[in-house]
Write a protein that binds this DNA or RNA. Structure first.
Length: 294
DNA sequence: GATTAATGCTAAA
DNA sequence: TTAGCCTTAATCT
């Protein structure tokens, strides 16, 4: 599942392959037929991510608003201008899928027959993108897009002056556990279950600490580390929070080496040897090291 | 072939 | 706080 870094990569990719192009918009699965009709034939002018939400802006002022949710994914294919466009989203993949670009030997002749439940298909003269499994997929107005973004907190992947202070303020005025607050998209947009666990570990913060018990300094460092970790994620196309010194692979971490605590319940903490703990809060699994985080 | 879990969120209870 | 949504890959029988 995509956390914010994946959606930012998607926005960049949409800009690269479709920016300025007129698109045929359809819904092979049928569930988005009415919305597709509102966008069909328009040029896609811009692609923006805010947290986990993706906004594609079209010529007529409408936006395609997509939230991948827990299982959504985009697949891309096309001619040489789509080379390097990887599929993004979908759970339990190690990073983004490498086979997204379907090389047909330089004779691209249109998109393939839709496979499975394709909610939206975008097609330009040079390639295509298929969306499936998204929890939100809607054609909305600019006003609605602004309203959707207004509900979100600051995004660590937007370098906006004041966002750091805004995050600190939003964190410190709540007595909810910081482990829950980091998943609250109105507090911090784009962090999901992996970054939640990993950034709290790296900062040595107990997930059960109430937001209003944190110091402004540690809240600021939490923001800074989210910026660092998620920027790495945008660069790598996968979430790696451990340093190279801990990897046995030459170019990157092997499976199971990319995280400090996420999905490592019962294993020894890489730093102090304490068994990594696991519980559920808010119907999501929370991993942490009771030795390092207190 | 059936079951389960998954980087998420909403709305109802 | 729980049920529901939505899809796929991995893990079972």
């Amino acid at each position: 599942m995509p956390e914010g870094h994946s959606v930012h990569r998607l926005a960049r990719q949409f800009q690269d392959v479709f920016g300025g192009s007129a698109l045929r918009v359809s819904s092979p699965q049928g569930r988005f037929a009415a919305g597709a009709a509102l966008l069909d034939g328009q040029r896609m002018l811009g692609a923006t991510a805010h947290g986990k939400q993706l906004f594609l802006r079209f010529d007529n002022g409408m936006y395609l608003h997509v939230h991948l949710g827990l299982y959504g994914a985009w697949d891309f294919g096309g001619d040489e201008t789509f080379r390097g466009a990887s599929s993004i989203g979908a759970p339990r993949r190690i990073g983004e899928r490498e086979s997204g670009f379907e090389d047909d030997g330089g004779t691209y002749s249109g998109p393939p027959e839709p496979v499975g439940a394709v909610r939206v298909r975008l097609v330009s003269a040079h390639g295509w993108a298929d969306l499936r499994g998204a929890s939100t997929c809607a054609a909305i107005t600019g006003e609605e897009a602004r309203a959707a973004r207004a509900k979100l907190g600051p995004d660590p992947l937007h370098l906006v002056p004041g966002d750091r202070a805004e995050f600190i303020a939003r964190l410190l005025r709540r007595k909810t556990a910081v482990g829950l607050l980091l998943m609250d998209q109105s507090v911090l947009a784009g962090v999901g279950n992996i970054y939640r666990a990993e950034v709290l570990f790296r900062q040595g913060i107990d997930p059960w600490t109430p937001g209003n018990a944190l110091s402004p300094e540690s809240a600021g460092l939490l923001w800074d580390d989210a910026v660092a970790a998620m920027s790495d994620g945008v660069r790598d196309g996968r979430i790696i929070t451990t340093p190279a010194a801990l990897w046995s692979g030459g170019e990157g971490p092997l499976d199971g080496e990319a995280h400090y605590v996420y999905q490592r319940a019962g294993q020894d903490c890489r730093r102090c040897g304490t068994q990594v703990a696991l519980t559920e809060i808010g119907a999501r699994k929370l991993y942490w090291c009771p030795g390092c985080q207190n």
